[in-house]
Amino acid sequence: MAIKSLVSGMRLTGYYFTHHKEILTQEYPDNRETLTFGERFRGEVVMPHDENNEHRCTGCTACEIACPNGTIKILTKMEVGEDGKKKKAIEKFVYHLGMCTFCNLCIVACPTDAIKMSHDFEHSVFDRKQLTKVLNKPDSKIVKGVE
């Protein structure tokens, strides 16, 4: 009885020893090209820009309020629009990747879908300063019609 139980365990390991198709190892840096993620995978917060260098952020700071750790800071400026009216616009959308917990609350809070989670997960850098990112590109503007 006792020996039977030991042998049955050895049968299992022996089975896996001889059946190499069961191997699960993923050779990570080599399979970078073929890695797949769920479309909702949370890598880091990015602000998509279209081909005209335009984003959808109005600077409403809903994400800044929603963020539990103060990861997001929005610096706004007053800008004169085409119709001559003064309008609030973002100067810098500062994102501290080092503080982010990838909880997705900012994405849910954004009323204009200006930010989203990218699938980039390789965040390591040699200098901490590089973790503080400005998400809006230089000289970018808000897409027309987004209020």
């Binding site: 993620f37 769920g38 479309e39 909702r40 995978f41 949370r42 917990t101 990838f102 909880c103 997705n104 609350l105 989670m117």
Partner: peptide, 12 residues
Amino acid sequence: FEETCGARLTMN
């Protein structure tokens, strides 16, 4: 989990 929640461990 990753597909539905977006994260594998700390799903929120």
